[in-house]
Design a protein around this nucleic acid. Structure first.
Lengths: 230, 230
DNA sequence: CGGCCCTTTGACGGACGTCAAATAGCGTGG
DNA sequence: CCACGCTATTTGACGTCCGTCAAAGGGCCG
């Protein structure tokens, strides 16, 4: 996972761009942006010529139906790249939203791509990230198609805990949890009302505690058990 | 879609390998295999050093839970590449099965990869395929998370019809449909019993007809309507 | 002919959705 | 600091979609 952290650092401030990972390479141009919470980062209609990398804050990437139904494909954390399903090909139909305040950097897709093709180890790094990302997408399909509400929500929490640990964004068993129930619902294919019931039950039996947008895993073993097979 | 057909042709017999698309390039080694219907092509435990390409027949790629629940991620048709979520990185946990009799070719992953890095247009072709594949995965998540049983099944049929059309494997509105209900159930996150009910209803209202593993779309407009938004 | 798997059908059950009302937060402006 | 309004959360009653179970055909192959 170190490459993710590297990339995060690369865009986070210390370095100017991913290109700086290669001493001697002229840095990629990029521009920094900031978006307040709850606002759109990337609109589904835009045929984007840019690749976006989250520097700070929490976001979501999703697809929506004309009638308003939405599916969140992934929760975006610092260091995450918004491929919109294609690092190499621009894709439409995807949208990205800020959950908390978000800062991010924008790279020109063609420049990014050219650089990858030029430096083999950068290329390897990115394909590795892309493969992991795809594996996550496949797991999501399994979750949505074959797991119960409680399993899905438990797995979402465990998954986040893991990703936050990689980023040193967790202390003890306490983590930020800046979601509205609607976010969790859209990520798990449920309704906000049902999410409320499941989270309520989790707290009643004492596997987690939620307080002021902070979540504590009080019984990790049991939570993993609820998350079910695998 | 021409590149898919090219690749299909490339592995189908006329050409010896994808490398032959490049005159002057020494062909990639590959080996041909045949698998009877209902058998495993690729086992989830194998840490595969191979990339597989379907030459003929229908297959499925899926993930399974220890308790037996399965999610089919995609229906494999001639020309399809079995990435197992990673063309570049081997992945475990995925399995591929033959639905009808299947023939396929096996390429060494490292050789395949090296070739891509050497020839930019081959690389572009593959990233395009990979991006499309990823987009399909994301649509699957949307289907499983946010669409009803009837919508999912209707979309599966329309999707197949489209892919078969690209491959000239459809005549009029009639197509092969070699699935057991269990396949459709695992692809749509439903149960075989419910699939039976929905397909029965589709036939009762006259949007499709199924006979001897052959499916006819008798009312394409209505089927698209049932498939819902988008 | 017999066995096996698949499909169909119906009755019933359960997980999750919908609706609605009450309560709690939370940011804004006075 | 309080009042206000908006949005989120909680809770309960009820509805629906889909799953489960079971029994009765149907097709295929030995």
């Amino acid at each position: 996972m170190f490459y993710k952290l590297n990339l995060c650092a690369a865009v986070g401030g210390k370095l100017k761009s991913a290109a700086d990972l290669h001493p001697g390479v002229s840095p990629l141009k990029s521009s920094a942006h900031s978006i307040p919470s709850r606002r759109t980062i990337h609109h589904p209609k835009e045929w984007s010529e840019f690749v976006l990398i989250i520097c700070s804050g929490w976001g979501s990437s999703s697809i929506a139906l004309p009638d308003g139904r939405r599916q969140i494909l992934s929760i975006l954390l610092p260091g995450d790249i918004i491929f919109s399903a294609g690092l190499f090909e621009p894709a439409s139909g995807y949208s990205a939203e800020a959950i908390t305040e978000v800062t991010y950097r924008k790279f020109k897709r063609v420049e990014f791509k050219a650089l990858l093709f030029e430096y083999r180890d950068l290329f390897e790094m990115l394909t590795k990230i892309w493969s992991e990302d795809r594996a996550q997408a496949d797991q999501l399909a399994l979750d949505l198609g074959r797991r119960t509400a409680a399993e899905r929500i438990a797995r979402l929490i465990l998954n986040l805990a893991e990703r936050l640990t990689e980023r040193n964004m967790i202390s003890g068993h306490m983590m930020e949890f800046p979601f509205r129930h609607r976010h969790i619902a859209d990520a798990t294919g449920l309704t906000p009302v049902h999410v409320s019931k499941v989270l309520g039950e989790f707290q009643r039996v004492g596997v987690i505690e939620i307080n002021k947008r902070l979540l504590t895993i009080t019984d990790a073993t049991e939570l993993r058990h609820v998350a079910g097979s695998h």
